[in-house]
Structures are given as structure tokens and as C-alpha cells.
């Protein structure tokens, strides 16, 4: 083993293999469109995944299962307030992010005040948020304003703006985690709660911020996704429950906490979306796609050398 790859690079590697396989099958002309559409879809997974990463990094057992329902609720709330009007896009965005922030705080509040395991607390909240979304929108799909839809599809000189904007977000996350005081505190809390507390870090506040940011990223994803997919729908968040966890772990973040990798999320997200494209072009059935997804998740997790803890 002279060649040791960083854990987070496997996602990119597999994604690359799938991209090449798709191109080989359907000709070089498909290279750019395939990549550009995968980047857009991956961008949504990355927004959700980055939030989940912050929570997972904040310590063993921390996880947010309410992301799909927060995403849906925020989408409905912002679609309702915008009412299809271009002038209301900014208030809509603010509302979506605010809904997410409140949801994140409620999650952490239930975890500390009731001393519940995060899995259970966020699961119970997700039921409540889901109910709110039900009542806000019912079965109907709420249409987004034209300006929002155009923004999600906007491209300058053939380059889609949305993925680039989300890359900016990733870069911000990397900088904060590497250089920012908040980021260092987050990782310290994740590595050892006791040591962090002895070092004078307010553990509760750090985790509260992590859950709040996670909720906000779910809200943002809901806002963008409803613009992209033509409105808010009740099941729009469903796929992100497992995917948000999978992209974080495949991206090289340890489920034991204390260590995070924001760039790796892109690799895992691209892997997920390029594989879907590849299997679609091969005209494989949905069943095979699920089988391969599962097998690759396990394979990657099993062969990738784990980052050393502590």
C-alpha cells in the first residue's frame, strides 16, 4: 500500500468512474450536460449534507433525522409567503432559513432539556414538523415565483450558477472549520466533551449553534429545491433522510464526531447523482440502482482507511 488515498477522495474517484462510464456509453457529447446536471442535483445534497456534517461532527450520537421534514416545512412556509410574487423572494428566503433555525433550536432544546438521545428527539420533532407542513400546504403543490425558478436554472456562459454558489458555501464551511474559532470549538467538543468543557468551551452553546445551522441549511435546501422542482411537495424531502447521512460519512466525516470534511461531501453527492444518471442511461431498473447504491456505500465504508480518532 504505497498509495494511500485520503478517505474523502474515494467519492470523487467513484463519481469519476461513473461519469466516464456514462460518456463511453452515450458518446462524448453527453460529457458536459451529464456533469452539469449532476452538479446541480449534487448541490442540493451538499447543502443538506453540510448541515448534517456539523451536527454529526459535534459528538458521538449526534444526528438530525428531522432534516427532510424541516426542508419540506420551510419550502411550504416560503412558498406561502411568496405567493408566486417575484418581489417576495427575499422575504421568502429569510423565512425559509428562519423556520430552519427555529426547528434546529427546538431539536437541540429537546435533546438537552429532556435529555433525549438525538435520534429520538429529532425523530419526534420530525413528526411534528411534518404535521405543520401538512396543514400549511395540504396535498396541493405551491408554485414558486418565476424569479426563484430562473435563479436555480440560471447559467452564465454555460456554467450553472447554483452549484458555484453552493461551492462558495462549502469553501466557507472549510474555512470556518479550519481557521474559525467556532469551527475549532465544534471539533473539540466532538472529540471530547469533557476536555472541551475543561478548556472553557460552552459545550451546550456550540451544539446549539450546530443544530441551528443544520436546520438553516435544511431550510435553504427546501427553498432552493422548491424553486428548482416547480414548487413545494409533501414528499420532497424524503430522499434526503438517508442521503444526508450517507454523503457525510462517505465524504470522510467520522460518525464518532470530532472530525469533519466539507469538500468530501461533494464527492459523495456527485457519486450518488452520477450513478443515478449512469444507471438511467444503461436503462437499468430502479431495483438494480438501489442494490448498487447500497453495495457501494458498504464497500466504500469497508475499504476506506478510517481517520484516526484523537
Amino acid at each position: 500500500m504505497s498509495l494511500r488515498l485520503a478517505p474523502w477522495s474515494y467519492g470523487f474517484l467513484v463519481a469519476l468512474v461513473m461519469w466516464v462510464a456514462t460518456i463511453c456509453y452515450s458518446g462524448t457529447g453527453s460529457a458536459i450536460p451529464t456533469l452539469s446536471s449532476a452538479l446541480v442535483f449534487a448541490a442540493f445534497s451538499v447543502v443538506v449534507g453540510t448541515g448534517q456534517m456539523l451536527v454529526i461532527a459535534s459528538g458521538p450520537g449526534n444526528i438530525d433525522l428531522s432534516m427532510p421534514s424541516v426542508l419540506t416545512l420551510a419550502a411550504y412556509a416560503s412558498m406561502s409567503i411568496m405567493g408566486g410574487s417575484d418581489a417576495m423572494v427575499l422575504p421568502g428566503l429569510l423565512l425559509a432559513v428562519a423556520v430552519g433555525a427555529v426547528a434546529g433550536m427546538l431539536n437541540y432544546l429537546a435533546i438537552t432539556a429532556l435529555r433525549l438521545p438525538p435520534i429520538i428527539a429529532t425523530l419526534a420533532w420530525s413528526f411534528v414538523f411534518q404535521s405543520f407542513a401538512f396543514n400549511l400546504g395540504g396535498e396541493a403543490t405551491l408554485k414558486p415565483p418565476a424569479a426563484l425558478s430562473e435563479f436555480t436554472l440560471w447559467s452564465i456562459g454555460g456554467i450553472r450558477v447554483l452549484p458555484v454558489a453552493v461551492m462558495g458555501l462549502t469553501l466557507l464551511a472549510v474555512l470556518v472549520l479550519k481557521r474559525g474559532v467556532g469551527g475549532r470549538q465544534l471539533l473539540a467538543v466532538g472529540q471530547s466533551e469533557r476536555a472541551a468543557r475543561l478548556a472553557g468551551i460552552s459545550v451546550g452553546r456550540v451544539r446549539l449553534v450546530a443544530y441551528t445551522l443544520c436546520g438553516m441549511s435544511a431550510g435553504l435546501a427546501g427553498f432552493l429545491l422548491s424553486g428548482f422542482s416547480g414548487g413545494a411537495a409533501l414528499n420532497m424531502g424524503d430522499t434526503y433522510l438517508l442521503e444526508s447521512i450517507a454523503v457525510v460519512v462517505l465524504g470522510g466525516t467520522s460518525v464518532a464526531g470530532g472530525q469533519a470534511n466539507a469538500i468530501g461531501i461533494w464527492g459523495a453527492a456527485l457519486f450518488f447523482n452520477l450513478m443515478a444518471t449512469m444507471l438511467n442511461t444503461f436503462q437499468m431498473q430502479a431495483g438494480i440502482r438501489f442494490l448498487l447504491t447500497g453495495a457501494l456505500i458498504i464497500l466504500i465504508v469497508a475499504i476506506v482507511p478510517r481517520p484516526k480518532a484523537g
Partner: peptide, 14 residues
């Protein structure tokens, strides 16, 4: 958590 998450895709696919 991640291995069984992968398994959930496998069972669903099967």
C-alpha cells in the same frame, strides 16, 4: 449506522 443504511438500499433494491 452506515453499514445498515447501505443494507437498507440493498433490501429495498432486492
Amino acid at each position: 449506522i452506515i453499514v445498515t443504511l447501505g443494507m437498507s438500499f440493498i433490501w429495498l433494491g432486492a
